[in-house]
Design a protein around this nucleic acid. Structure first.
Lengths: 342, 342
DNA sequence: TTGTAGGCGTTATCAA
DNA sequence: TTGATAACGCCTACAA
């Protein structure tokens, strides 16, 4: 590997001058500048960022910790994160948590802190107590960090989707369509996102003066198969069911298909709304009404916030006041919940 | 930040001894070992891997360059890569290419080589001439690298899915079902994967003595919407169409839905097969016959190969002989191509 | 078994 | 404008 010294030797200057020519932090004469650049080309010199980071005490590297990359939501968040990181001149370290309900914190974080990442985006869904590791003490030992998919906590920088409002929009839409017996297929009940979406469903019920009976709720596990089971149970225990809000599009798909197999016409007999707006959902039979989340935007926002935190800490400013940002979802109405066009 | 010197001072030993205690490359007495570990705990010392990498001349970091993370295929490959990298003690750097048909090579690679990654997994689909940057000279300046989703080239380590065989399996299956006029919906035609899948379709035609007429082929862009357009055109230009092989599941979905809207019964009037086996495909109406690719396994295999290359180079062995590995896809038969159960 | 010194590749400080 | 020199945090000979 060719180093800055090799370049210096070849250009007949000192290493420091080469450094100055490269970083432009001190003036270098046009002439030597030229010689240096020639030497660099000829030798194929590439600065070693490890060494740079060592002295600069910053690595220009961000880390993202996530789980379920194979799901649409996670991957879109990461697309946004990568994009924003890139634009700000950071490179991204990716760590995947295989089982988010059981986080081995030091195993996940050590490789990142050891590499002196400048900041961390924590995008692991909050499940049960899997975020209880978050303590002031622990955070003090970490670089700036911003959280996703988590219940906002005082003193933390959080970028979250307003799941509750999203679910409320979905449910209210069904109510507006004249539906009165609206089932709910939830995700695993210890997920924060599950509870939020359920709360939104309940809130819509309350506003409409409907009764959110337990017999209207069935738990799923985000898979389409669980959507099938859920709708089967719902239809059995509530003969009067006339609509369903499924907490994601996959479960909505399973529910829709199984309901059809059981002889229900959608949306005439049963209206269905999902959550996520996966690209396929517009092509289901019938096309699925669903809730769109600005996931890429959430990823971008989190990196921007992170960058500000990093700069603030670096400039020795009093630590930026962290806050929670909520992104508003939008309802996308399709045929699974509306009278078909004549 | 507390350094190894701080630990040394506190444990009343030299920095070298602390290093030895940590790396276990030289023996350290039980007693001082204890003192050192106490000091580490008390100070909350964390080794600085940047400094370690600087002297070790390896960063224990791998990079993956990919595009289209929001698609199922890409994300599954990366899941496999991350898993294997993790198990081998590497951390992963992620770089996403926004437009894979137009790669800015140095923009993508510089941040990686500057950080002295030990190896690179190149998982950008081959489109047109976007892989023409691959030259002996350029590769010589890079760390070991393994390629994905690319036509195998002599002298390169490639892990690819056998797309051609996969498409052949799909088409042969349709032929076995008695279909004779089997349309093809392709991806964008300058993609390597597109050409391979088309070749597989043609190969099956040849073996069966069928004529692969141009009127049976329509180009899509991987989206479900393009599948809709494609099937519309196919049905218009070939009234005798009795089956379709779509080059991915999304296009199959669009085709299936549009064919049904146009009054075709699936599979009775028109049999459909897709490619990818996205999780939703088992819940389409009807469930979609498709081709399963071992993408996670491909990711794992590529990292293992990369690791061997790194070790070989490190041990000064003659560079490992690189070769191409093909993973065989499997046909998954569902109702979209078979007579429905009575 | 432990300490000392030099070096990994850069940048920053201080003279010149 | 340029050149020495000393860090940055760690590892590794070589001595002791």
């Amino acid at each position: 590997m060719v180093t800055i010294k090799d370049v210096a030797k070849r250009a007949k200057v000192s290493p420091g001058t080469v450094s100055n020519a490269l970083t432009k932090k001190r003036p270098v004469s046009k002439e030597t500048q030229q010689r240096i650049h020639n030497a660099i080309k000829e030798l194929g010199y590439q600065p070693n960022m490890l060494a740079q980071s060592l002295v600069a005490r910053r690595s220009q590297t961000l880390a993202v910790v996530a789980s379920g990359l194979e799901y649409y939501g996670t991957s879109r968040i990461i697309v946004g994160i990568e994009k924003a990181a890139n634009e700000l001149g950071y490179t991204l370290l990716l760590t995947l948590i295989a089982d988010p309900s059981e986080i081995n914190l030091s195993r996940a974080l050590e490789p990142l802190t050891a590499r002196r990442v400048d900041g961390i985006v924590w995008a692991v869904p909050e499940i049960g107590g899997n975020h209880s590791w978050i303590t002031r003490k622990r955070l003090a030992a970490l670089p700036p960090i911003v959280f996703h998919r988590m219940k906002p906590r005082a003193g933390l920088q959080v970028v979250a989707i307003d799941n509750r409002t999203g679910a409320m929009l979905a449910t209210q839409h069904l109510i507006n369509q004249g539906r009165r017996t609206i089932g709910l297929i939830t995700g695993p009940k210890n997920w924060w996102e599950t509870r939020e979406r359920r709360a939104g469903w309940e809130q819509a019920f309350e506003r409409a003066g409907l009764v959110a009976s337990a017999s209207l709720i069935v738990e799923g596990d985000w898979t389409a198969a669980s959507g099938e089971h859920a709708i089967t149970r719902l239809l059995a225990q509530r003969r009067d069911l006339d609509a369903v809000f499924a907490s994601n599009d996959q479960m909505a798909l399973g529910a829709m298909r199984m309901a059809q197999l059981l002889g229900r016409k959608i949306p005439q007999d049963l209206a269905i709304v999902g959550f996520d707006n996966i690209p396929e959902s517009a092509f289901f039979s019938p096309p699925l009404t669903t809730v769109y989340q600005q996931l890429i935007e959430a990823g971008v926002a989190s990196v921007n916030a992170l960058h500000r935190m990093i700069e603030a800490r670096h400039d020795g400013h009093a630590n930026m006041k962290p806050r929670a940002t909520f992104l508003m979802p939008e309802l996308i109405v399709r045929e699974s919940s509306t009278p078909p066009p004549r």
